[in-house]
Simulated scan of single mutants.
Amino acid sequence: MIDTDPYFAERKALLRQEALVQRDKVARSARADAAQQSARHFFDGVALEPDDIVAAYWPIRDEIDCKPLLTRLMDSGQPVCLPVVVGEDDPLELRLWEPGQPLYPSGFGTLAPAETAPLVEPDVVVIPLLGFDRLGTRLGYGKGYYDRTLAAMRKSPLLVGYAYAAQELEFIPREEHDLPLNILVCESGLRRFGA
């Protein structure tokens, strides 16, 4: 559902505050288990071809930890790339993380492959979320990095939201450029959206 509300930005800002509160309520003691369970659900429910490139992320703030997912992807030989912010209004660079190569600080508390790593277009994009709703609408931090990145891609990757179950919101308004998730993965399972 596309939103035409003139107060759209204000509504989204309030939803971001609500989502941060919801995410903060996830018990610290439960987070490591949630990360492991989410990685299991991803591998149980997301079909990957051996050469499919998976874009994941290095977690920041209180995002669900996707390092267990990254470890399993790398250990299985699946090609993985990580995002790098190169400019405030630019799409993310998606750099291939080649086996045995170190990661480096890349701003915002994240780690990424070196500047010399190959740039790739992934087949699957695992997106950290502030919130999501039952329609697969995703809520991010509001900077538009993933929106710009997805719009600039030549292919249409599978979009997989990665979050805690507690981050589900009742309804998130969607603008025309907001691509919905295909799949949501959280500690309680996997949910598919759309046709």
Score class of each variant (00 low, 15 high):
Phe43Lys: 10
Phe171Pro: 07
Ala9Glu: 12
Leu96Phe: 13
Gln22Leu: 14
Gln167Val: 08
Leu184Pro: 03
Ile60Phe: 11
Asp89Arg: 11
Leu15Gly: 07
Leu159Arg: 10
Ala19Glu: 05
Ser156Trp: 12
Asp44Phe: 03
Gly161Asn: 03
Arg192Phe: 14
Asp147Met: 13
Val120Met: 10
Glu175Val: 03
Asp24His: 13
Pro157Arg: 00
Glu121Met: 09
Arg28Cys: 07
Leu181Ile: 08
Val124Ala: 01
Asp5Leu: 09
Pro128Glu: 02
Lys12Ile: 14
Ala195Gln: 12
Glu93Ile: 03
Tyr145Trp: 07
Glu18Cys: 13
Trp97Gly: 03
His177Val: 12
Leu69Ala: 10
Gly100Phe: 09
Cys186Met: 02
Asp51Ser: 15
Asp89Met: 08
Asp147Pro: 08
Glu18Leu: 15
Arg31Leu: 05
Arg95Asp: 11
Ala55Trp: 02
Asp44Ala: 15
Leu103Glu: 10
Ala47Gly: 05
Ala165Ser: 06
Gln78Thr: 14
His41Gly: 04
Cys81Lys: 00
Ala55Phe: 07
Val21Phe: 12
Ser29Trp: 10
Lys12Val: 15
Ala112Thr: 01
Glu175Ser: 15
Leu96Asn: 07
Asp5Ser: 11
Leu92Trp: 04
Asp123Ser: 12
Leu181Asp: 03
Arg16Ile: 06
Gln101Asp: 13
Gln22Glu: 11
